[in-house]
């Protein structure tokens, strides 16, 4: 028992240990609460993540259909030429927010889904098939950004839950039992020393 070997069985050590046990127990309680809170948060995010994943998949199928139609009906030449007119790339701003001590990202994108007359190409020379393909891909990009935010949040939460769980377990099954054991050892040693003292005193008197 390494902990016993390094312990001096003194009253001051006992006081220190008692303080440590109290701190560890309150830390354990707090971490357990944090873990439970994070798990609840994770379940909420999990639902959102499932929904957004489904949305992304559905939107991807729709966008693929629309671009397939645009390429078939208008021709890939027209689709590529029209795509040349679209020079704007969406700007992403990454800010962070705090969920129970876990820093998660918040992604804000500017000007992804645009109005019909803001796409950058002329309307007279194009058709609704191009509009619909462009629209569906713009919506897809928006959904992907949202999915990235939610899935990163979920990943960070999972990492933090794992970390918190390890800490809770370490406190519960290793740190606190060892501290209690050390405390018991000191109490036992102190009692023993007390008895030895009493016995020694009695012998001196006798």
């Amino acid at each position: 028992m390494a902990i016993k070997d390094n312990i001096k069985p003194t009253r001051s050590e006992l006081i220190d240990l008692k303080k440590k046990i109290k701190l560890s127990q309150s830390g354990h309680k707090l971490l357990k609460m944090k873990r439970d809170g994070l798990i609840l948060e994770l379940f909420e995010i999990l639902e959102k993540a499932k929904d957004i994943r489904k949305d992304v998949e559905a939107q991807f199928s729709l966008a693929s259909l629309k671009i397939a139609i645009a390429k078939s009906v208008e021709g890939s030449v027209v689709v590529k030429s029209t795509a040349f007119a679209l020079k704007d790339t969406p700007e992403l701003t990454l800010v962070s927010k705090n969920v129970m001590g876990v820093v998660v990202p918040k992604i804000e994108a500017s000007s992804v889904h645009k109005k019909l007359d803001e796409h950058g190409y002329g309307l007279i020379g194009t058709s609704s098939r191009i509009d619909e393909a462009v629209d569906s891909f713009e919506v897809l990009v928006e959904k992907i950004i949202l999915a990235a935010e939610i899935e990163t949040t979920m990943k960070r939460l999972l990492d933090d839950i794992e970390k918190t769980k390890r800490r809770v377990n370490a406190l519960e099954f290793k740190v606190i039992p060892e501290l209690i054991e050390a405390q018991n050892f000191i109490i036992l040693r102190l009692e023993e020393m007390e008895r030895e003292n009493t016995f020694r005193l009695k012998r001196i008197k006798g």
Binding site: V77, V78, K80, S81, A83, F84, A85, L86, K87, G125
Partner: peptide, 26 residues
């Protein structure tokens, strides 16, 4: 002709290569 003019200008606008633009002219 108008289609080709549009394609050339769009291509130059977006920085497409000469080959990419020429592929899309008719």
């Amino acid at each position: 002709d108008i289609w080709n003019i549009k394609t050339i200008i769009r291509g130059k606008f977006s920085g497409a290569s000469e080959d990419e633009i020429l592929e899309d002219v008719v």
